[in-house]
Design a protein around this nucleic acid. Structure first.
Lengths: 168, 168
DNA sequence: TATTGTTATACTCTATAACTATA
DNA sequence: TATAGTTATAGAGTATAACAATA
């Protein structure tokens, strides 16, 4: 969300964002970082997520839709564009004649590996605007928040954010 | 960020996310909250962000592009769609014959106000998973991070009435 | 000449609805 | 009939390049 100028009566000392504005803006900044970096590899955030999900799965289109939180028709296009670029492959399921299994190609695996290393560097660079002790504190607070959030949702955080939707 | 299932040995012990994972995942969680709420008002995240930015600014298209991190041609379309829905208005700049000033309509202001109240509740609910002192600390750290980041980008997070018009 | 904004164009992402082919 | 996937269609969001008007 955008910054809003605090009114005098709010008595917010000089230059601090509200918790809501802060969290919202932070999310935009981080998303933008990820987007920019992915773009250097000619990847969108969505394509990057797709490749990320496939690192340790070989799901059907339907399962993929659930993992990404998208409609199956959206996934058709997503996979089609990735396949056209040689990043993923489709294969008929041996178990179900209707189903299609999606997997990373070697090139796709190499792509996602490189992109993730760079994401790390970007986010680290962002964090380096804070003194080290603040960094440490921020990281720990965020971690606690996310762990609590995930537990409340019955989500296993450590597989990944993308698998949120995987478990019904 | 993207999904990868860590090996058991990685996941089990400490249950703390890396700073990078924490920030990335937090951004996805917050974006999802925002997206869901915005959709209830038939708004996209981008449209919501546009309205949010305009709460206390009346920028030119160019300034808007910078604030949102988009190309000016993208902003033309964005504003055009919002204008068509009666949420924002364009006006010729009195100071510069080339420039256009964008502002919220009354309806746009009402929209964003309602959406933000709800979003505030969502974020508060998220934050309430932390003890109060942690909440305050987190908010302050995020604020500091964003202020540093914005300064580096030459963006004014805290516009004043005067600085709206005083475009050097 | 440089800047502001729009237009033309093209692509990705997304959803809904209708379709095909299996089960 | 129900499920898996694709196709057809439509709209938002985004960028690049070319352009007009103004500075």
């Amino acid at each position: 969300m955008a910054a809003r100028t605090p009114s005098r009566s709010e008595a917010t000392p000089s230059r601090e964002l509200s918790p809501v504005d802060g969290l919202a803006q932070l999310s935009f900044v981080v998303q933008r970082l990820l987007e920019r970096r992915a773009a250097e590899h000619d990847l969108s955030i969505t394509q990057t997520r797709l490749l990320g999900v496939l690192r340790d799965r070989k799901p059907t289109m339907q399962e993929l839709a659930k993992l990404l939180g998208l409609d199956k028709s959206s996934v058709t296009g997503l996979v089609e564009r990735a396949e056209r670029r040689g990043l993923v492959a489709r294969a008929a399921s041996p178990a179900d004649g209707r189903a299609v299994l999606v997997s990373l190609t070697r090139q796709g695996r190499s792509f996602i590996a490189r992109a993730l290393v760079e994401f790390e560097a970007d986010v680290s660079a962002l964090l380096e605007r804070l003194p080290k002790s603040d960094r440490r504190a921020l990281s720990e607070l965020i971690s606690r928040l996310l762990v609590a959030h995930a537990e409340e949702q019955g989500i296993d955080l450590f597989p990944s954010i993308d698998s949120d939707r995987a478990t019904p």
